[in-house]
Simulated assay, not measured.
Amino acid sequence: MRLIFLGPPGAGKGTQAARIVAKHGIPQLSTGDMLRAAVAAGTPIGVKAKAVMDAGGLVSDEIVIGIVADRIEEADAKRGFILDGFPRTLAQAEALDTMLASKGLKLDTVLELKVDQSKLVDRIVRRAAEARAAGQPVRKDDDPEVFKTRLEAYNRDTAVVAPYYAARGQVVDIDGMKPIDEVTAAIEKALGAN
């Protein structure tokens, strides 16, 4: 089961990915986590990434794809994986397809959490308040102004990825505004159909 989660920040991708991980035993792959791990491990691609980051640059799509390619070779990803927050651009989506094809793999499903973006700020403010009330740290990106900037970046750069996969018949739309358990049930239904 090789999946991609798409949707704007605050749509619930992380929450739903964690549930899939728990139920299906496949890893959720975050490019940020993979990048830090590759740098820490000193892998060849991690060394390249470290040099770029140390120079203050953005890691290229080629390096990110290399890190994903290395990570999906690990034992825990043999049965599948969830890509959350990647691909972020059309170029990354195309490079991911090429890399997977070179390994004889393909994506099974692209799940897009559809949400009312005008209500996302309220969701983020509520999430921050719940974290404070529970004595947990509040995520830096749960600041409404930071969140609005992230949402603008998503709409500018990443929203084009869904039509790319939709043209291939791979996207399943999920209503991300429903209660969490209903979203999970809709995702499980979509996964059962594939």
Rank of each mutant, 00 (worst) to 15 (best):
I4N: 12
A91I: 09
E112K: 13
T89S: 13
A128S: 14
K78T: 15
D122H: 11
R168S: 10
V161I: 08
K140Y: 08
D61C: 03
H24G: 00
V68P: 05
V39D: 03
R150A: 01
A41K: 15
S30L: 01
A38R: 02
V161C: 05
E145T: 08
P137I: 05
F5W: 08
V21A: 04
P8F: 00
A162F: 07
A95Y: 06
T98C: 02
L105R: 11
N155W: 05
R79C: 00
A128K: 11
Q16K: 04
R132K: 15
A49H: 13
E188W: 14
A51L: 09
G57T: 03
A134Q: 14
D61Y: 13
T98Y: 01
G14V: 00
L96A: 02
S102Y: 07
A133R: 11
K106D: 15
V52H: 04
K114C: 14
K178H: 06
A69Q: 12
L6T: 04
D84R: 02
I45C: 03
L105N: 09
L111Q: 08
G135A: 07
D70S: 13
A22Q: 15
R123M: 02
K50T: 01
Q170A: 13
E62P: 02
A134V: 04
D141W: 02
K23Q: 14
G7K: 05
A162G: 11
P163D: 12
I26L: 05
V146F: 05
V21E: 15
K50L: 12
V59L: 04
D76C: 05
Q136S: 14
K23I: 03
V161Y: 09
P163R: 00
G104N: 12
K23N: 06
A95H: 07
A38L: 00
L6P: 03
G169S: 06
A40K: 08
I82D: 11
A22M: 11
D76R: 00
G176V: 10
